[in-house]
């Protein structure tokens, strides 16, 4: 279990990094924390010729709330730092909780938020949280900088909208306005494992009617990408998140989800588990609205 041979470079600007990624002579890969990439290198499942380490690019190490109240997390920001950040915990608790469910502190000390998003394991917590929070992704490449919405970002298992010659420089999370409640629930085999199945929920309370004005419901471990189910959201909107509404939403989830089998659980288990977690998560989210 040793990596294949490659070269390594640590540029100090995004421009340099992008130029290196665009080099057609050598297949380059971005590394920051390496907590997803290095296991794949060790197993020789990833075989880059050049690793471009972006952690020495100062601007990528920024985590801040911008003038419009959006949380901006640079590509080199470690998970542990983001999860411990006061602004994140206060304003984006769903994100902080989802980060806390990634592996173990020993992993989160090195792993980056953007690295987990760009790696895109569909059983991972962060992609699902990102879709639920309607995050946007800033991608820089030889053709300039573009911004992609969360639902377009995750393309397939281990695949995102970031092209081989591009760099995810920043993940941007809009603020959660008042009367929004959230929850993240998952089933794992062991403490710290990837989710067998999980769900992130954000509900908005219409204070006049005390019903759900809007809902975002996204599942992990349920498909090749984080699975957002508008039908479930529709089933929740306008309800008081009572027993009947929850049962109806759960029925929709059961009917719509089509997860896969693996050694840890059957598809059937994931479907049932997703529906069950949905009820739990909606209940919690509603209490937090």
């Amino acid at each position: 279990m040793k990596p294949t041979s490659f070269d390594y470079t640590a540029p100090s600007t995004v421009g340099e990094a992008v130029a290196l990624l665009g080099d057609e002579e050598r297949e380059a890969k971005v590394v920051a924390g390496g907590q997803s990439l290095i296991p794949m290198l060790n197993m020789r499942l990833a075989r880059p010729e050049l690793l471009v380490d972006i952690t020495r690019i100062p601007e990528l190490g920024r985590l801040h709330v911008d003038g419009s109240g959006k949380l901006r997390i640079g590509a080199a920001v470690r998970q542990a730092r983001a999860a411990a950040d006061g602004a994140v915990r206060e304003g984006w608790p769903l994100l902080a909780v989802a980060i806390g469910r990634i592996g173990h502190p020993q992993i989160r000390h090195r792993g980056t938020v953007c690295g987990s998003l760009a790696h895109h394991d569909p059983a991972a917590e962060l992609p699902t949280a990102a879709v639920c929070l309607d995050a946007r992704f800033v991608i820089t490449g030889p053709r300039g900088t573009r911004t992609v919405g969360a639902e377009d970002f995750f393309v397939a298992t281990f695949s995102t909208a970031v092209e081989a010659d591009e760099l995810l420089t920043e993940a941007v999370f809009p603020p959660l306005p008042a009367h929004h409640g959230w929850a993240f629930e998952e089933l794992t085999r062991r403490h710290g494992d990837f989710a067998t199945v999980g769900v992130a929920v954000v509900l908005e309370r219409d204070t006049a009617t005390d019903t759900v004005r809007s809902a975002r419901v996204v599942f992990c471990g349920a498909g090749p990408v984080p699975v957002r189910l508008p039908a479930v959201e529709d089933a929740l909107v306008g309800t008081d998140v009572g027993e009947h509404a929850l049962a109806a939403a759960a029925r929709v989830a059961l009917a719509r989800l089509a997860p896969a089998d693996d050694v840890h659980a059957t598809a059937e288990y994931r479907r049932e588990g997703a529906a069950h977690l949905l009820v739990r998560a909606c209940t919690t989210a509603w209490e937090r609205c």
């Binding site: 590394v31 390496g34 290095i38 380490d53 952690t55 020993q106 992993i107 000390h109 090195r110």
Partner: peptide, 10 residues
């Protein structure tokens, strides 16, 4: 941190 998930060069 995990020494096995860290490159010496880093």
């Amino acid at each position: 941190v995990r020494a096995c998930l860290t490159l010496a060069v880093q």
